[in-house]
């Protein structure tokens, strides 16, 4: 128990430290990189970016924990079900329609609607095809997710070929994921509330997720109602990932690596794994956003998804090696 509490404390401290770092990092064309308390005019942007990072990190990590439990697969991530390509296709379609009709608002891809519609459409299709004898089936879900991803990818490529050059790079940047420094208050409250509730509900489902790690017959035999539990995991994981995609695009790796980092610190039981993963996910995105703020390559701000993958990828391999030597 104390080891788990120490783990949670460590993650909280890490998140706080990274948030302060993100707040202080300052880069301007004259003085270059420095650490300074921001002016009031900048502070609001930075606080927004930090808040959004935390919300997105909690959402994606919780979604990852839920999907790894649902699919009984440690390689599952929120985007394995094709949700990111679905959202991407939604955004791409809206951008293309905006370009074709001269509607600049749609063309910019800033609107959250198309991403949400694309993500929800994909979730509905995957849900419809991912069942066997009325029960959501892990293998069917993964296979359908992969195929739906491929189809959405092909359609995106199709639209890309029809589009002018500028539109192509815009959609590429969107697909890498980025943390906005300003966002509509209502949008922020909505995804923030969903992330907060999502973490709480997932914690409440912790023991059910523990039981769901057993095979189907066994899970039932110890008293788990698999149908309702799998459906809840699917809906909650999908909603959290879809909500975060509407704010930041599909940010890679967070939903995959945050649960594993949390497991290393506090073990596999889900009730505490959920908040630990949420803290780890939030830390990773804040860190990646800080990196994206600090590093300048003369080509404008890099999408934050580049840094989550660059930080998360090696970290994931390190965790993998450590798990093996620990015999876990």
């Amino acid at each position: 128990m104390s080891r788990r509490m120490t783990g949670l404390g460590f993650l909280t401290a890490m998140l706080a430290g990274l948030a302060v770092l993100r707040l202080l990092i300052d880069r301007d064309p004259v003085h270059g990189l420095s650490l300074a308390w921001p002016d009031a005019s900048y502070a609001a942007f930075r606080w927004t970016a930090i808040l959004v990072s935390i919300i997105i990190g909690c959402s994606l990590a919780t979604s990852g924990v839920l999907l790894q439990a649902l699919l009984r697969n440690p390689l599952a991530s929120p985007f394995i079900l094709g949700l990111s390509s679905g959202a991407g296709l939604g955004v791409m379609t809206a951008m293309y329609i905006g370009f074709a009709t001269g509607n600049d608002a749609l063309r910019s891809g800033a609107n959250a609607g198309p991403a949400l519609i694309g993500a929800l459409l994909v979730l509905t299709v995957v849900y419809g095809l991912g069942r066997r004898r009325g029960l959501l089936d892990p293998l069917s879900l993964v296979l359908v997710g992969v195929v739906v991803s491929a189809i959405c990818g092909a359609l995106m490529m199709f639209l890309q070929r029809l589009s002018p050059e500028g539109l192509r790079s815009d959609i590429l940047i969107w697909m890498m994921g980025r943390i906005p420094q300003s966002i509509a208050t209502s949008h922020l409250i909505l995804v923030g509330a969903l992330a907060f509730l999502g973490v709480l509900i997932a914690m409440a489902m912790g023991r059910a997720m523990d039981a769901a790690t057993l095979g189907e017959d066994e899970a039932r035999s110890i008293g788990l109602s698999l149908g309702p539990v799998r459906l809840s995991m699917f809906v909650l994981a999908g909603a959290l990932a879809a909500a975060s995609v509407t704010v930041a695009g599909p940010i890679a790796f967070v939903g995959l690596i945050a649960p594993h980092a949390a497991r290393l610190l506090i073990g596999p039981r889900h009730t505490l794994l959920v908040p630990a993963a949420a803290l780890a996910g939030a830390s990773l995105i804040v860190a990646a956003d800080a990196a994206s703020q600090a590093l300048e390559f003369g080509a404008g701000r890099m999408p934050v998804g580049i840094f989550t993958a660059l930080i998360g990828g090696p970290a994931f391999i390190w965790i993998l090696k450590n798990r093996q030597t620990a015999g876990v």
């Binding site: 009984r72 440690p74 523990d210 790690t213 057993l214 039981r269 798990r323 876990v328």
Partner: peptide
């Protein structure tokens, strides 16, 4: 044989 998909 019981399969447990977690490091319990």
């Amino acid at each position: 044989r019981s399969t447990v998909a977690a490091a319990f």
